[in-house]
Design a protein around this nucleic acid. Structure first.
Length: 576
DNA sequence: GCCGTTTTCGGCCCGACTGTTTTCAGTCG
């Protein structure tokens, strides 16, 4: 019989999340939070948890005590958790699905399944239409109507937007409102301020001397499709793009506490409040109040607020309750890479392959952004759909780059290529040609559904090619469309370190690959990173900001990223 | 189920809103 396949950190976390959801339904107090906390920690653990277990260090993981350590060992050994299977039997089928409907939580979902035998959305829709829901305890006519509305909303929307698709529009709205008279301060908040890769809706927080005027102007924005709600201090609109934007206006005195509150994440806020309570303070969206004498401290900045809790300031991108509070207590937060630290773009496409602009246009665009260099990495021969370059074209393109470099001052175009990694791990251009290039990116473009062992071997072969500098979009995922390839990631990260290959953070809005969490885990292995926009046009060079945001969310410092160094240091790095 | 610069037991974030309720449970962010 085959040995059981190794269990990943993610799989164990998923089991714990399931246990937490089911315990919630049973109204078990506090345990769900304990399971979620542990799941959270396990997900972001830099080490394979099987190793942690072998070393006998499971209980050193925050949130893991003797009980959960035992459950982790059970899963590692048997691939299952008896506790979860028992819970699944106890709880009627469909409760989880029903509780995803807005307005229905675990309690109401349980009543619906118990009393009416409903197991899915369709059945609930029918029952509500037939007026069978209103008689149940805790339900009335109004909640029946709301249920129908929520089901309809879930069908029509329910999707999230890519950060890169809505950040420019959100920032434009913020800037327009900022110009209004009476505005004291205004900021994006919520997940868009934390630069999460996908965004449900846009939150904007402002302090103004004239809230009414601000709300009025907000509701007159040209890109509005409809107004959802409009009160004296809060308004919600839907843009023609389908994005919901919420604006809240608060007093100047409350602004900084409110900004922390509305920036979230929820888990981060909970951890902050726990911290406040430990110190006999109460933290809410209005400020920090002493529990002993009721005095309220006024924060002048967000930094103030963190310092009042004896914490290092925590950047919005880190506020996910992934250990940032613990690090801020100890003063060990990384100084994450600043926006603007990047000195050049190491992955752009020109009109030679599937790009829109000439190399010269890209170089000039990059100069405007303050870069010292770009690497033109057009596709090589294989992905023919992308008009890939053969060896003759590569030599010809090099000549053009040399010419442009003679004409540009204080800027250098690096001659690069994006090779395709074929199913055997070979590249589509010979090493003789690759040796003449400054930058070689190697990426998997197809056959992403290979079995894990084969995919791992494929990428390892490419990493061992001494000409490869960068592993392009390492997991191949497309956000909300394509799952990452199955690979033995710890093995890949270690090989990248040994072969001095940088892992790319591909900054295209639908990729952001590596993801934030993968960045953090890979960094734990000692890998270095390269951020590339994968631009197909001059405008696309702006994607870099999304890549930097991902690096920041992945706890990376400037020193972890090869294209934060000046040109001559980069050239040395690429040669070694 | 975890955890300790008050604690090894007794805590575990906070406020608002909604709808169903005669004083509050459930849900949400």
């Amino acid at each position: 019989m085959d040995p059981p396949s190794p269990i990943s950190n993610k799989q164990i976390a998923a089991i714990f999340y399931d246990v937490a959801d089911l315990l919630d339904i049973k109204s078990v107090k506090f345990k769900p939070a304990a399971y979620r906390r542990a799941a959270h920690e396990i997900e972001t653990l830099a080490e394979d948890i099987a190793l942690t277990s072998e070393r006998g260090k499971l209980e050193e993981i925050p949130g893991v005590g003797s009980n959960l350590a035992g459950k982790i060992r059970e899963i590692l050994e048997t691939g299952r958790l008896a506790h979860l299977e028992k819970l699944k039997q106890e709880i009627p089928r469909g409760v989880l699905e029903l509780s995803e409907i807005g307005g229905i939580g675990p309690k109401k979902a349980l009543i619906l399944t118990r009393e009416l035998g409903i197991t899915d959305r369709e059945e609930l829709d029918k029952a509500a239409r037939a007026g069978k829901v209103r008689g149940l305890p805790g339900f009335g006519e109004k909640s029946e109507k709301n249920i129908l509305q929520s089901i309809r909303a879930l069908k029509s929307t329910g999707r999230r937007f890519l950060l890169g698709d809505i950040l420019p529009a959100a920032e434009a709205i913020r800037k327009r409102l900022e110009m209004l008279p009476g505005i004291q301060v205004i900021s994006l908040a919520g997940s868009i301020r934390r630069r999460k890769e996908t965004i449900g809706d846009v939150d904007i927080l402002a302090a103004s001397k004239d809230p009414e005027k601000l709300i009025t102007e907000f509701c007159l924005l040209p890109e509005i499709d409809r107004i959802l709600g409009r009160g004296p201090t809060k308004s919600s609109i839907i843009l023609t793009s389908g994005v919901q934007v919420d604006l809240r206006v608060v007093d100047k005195d409350q602004y900084w506490a409110a900004l922390v509150y509305f920036t979230g994440s929820k888990d981060h806020n909970i951890a902050l409040r726990r911290r406040a309570l430990d110190r006999n303070w109460k933290l809410n969206e209005y400020g920090i109040t002493s529990l002993s004498d009721g005095t309220m401290l006024k924060a002048q900045t967000e930094q103030d607020l963190y310092h009042m809790l004896d914490l290092q300031y925590i950047e919005p991108e880190l506020r996910e309750d992934r250990g940032e509070i613990e690090a801020a207590i100890k003063g060990t937060l990384p100084s994450i890479v600043p926006y603007g630290a990047v000195k050049g773009d190491l992955h752009v496409h020109s009109a030679w392959s599937d790009g829109k602009h000439s190399i010269r246009e890209l170089a000039e665009g990059a100069k405007v952004l303050g870069y010292e260099y770009i690497a033109v990495c057009d596709h090589a021969w294989n992905p023919r759909i992308a008009r890939g370059l053969d060896e003759t074209a590569i030599v010809k393109q090099q000549k053009e780059i040399e010419q442009i470099n003679r004409e540009l001052e204080g800027f250098m175009v690096l001659a690069g290529i994006e090779c395709n990694i074929d199913p055997d791990g070979n590249l589509d251009i010979g090493n003789k040609i690759l040796g003449d290039l400054d930058v070689v990116v190697a990426s998997v473009h197809s056959g992403l559904d290979m079995p894990k062992a084969a995919m791992t071997a494929r990428v390892l072969t490419a990493l061992h090619n001494e000409q490869v500098n960068i592993l392009g979009h390492p997991t191949g995922r497309i956000i909300q469309q394509g799952e990452p390839a199955q690979m033995d990631f710890p093995v890949i990260w270690d090989a990248a370190v040994a072969q001095a290959v940088a892992l790319e953070i591909n900054a295209a809005p639908s990729r952001l690959d590596l993801s934030d969490t993968n960045c953090r885990i890979a960094r734990g292995h000692g890998t270095r990173f390269s951020i590339g926009s994968d631009a197909k046009s001059v405008e696309n060079l702006m994607f870099m900001e999304l890549g930097v945001a991902t690096a920041r969310r992945g706890w990376l410092e400037a020193g972890d990223i090869i294209n934060t160094v000046p040109l001559r240091d980069l050239l040395r790095l690429l040669e070694s």
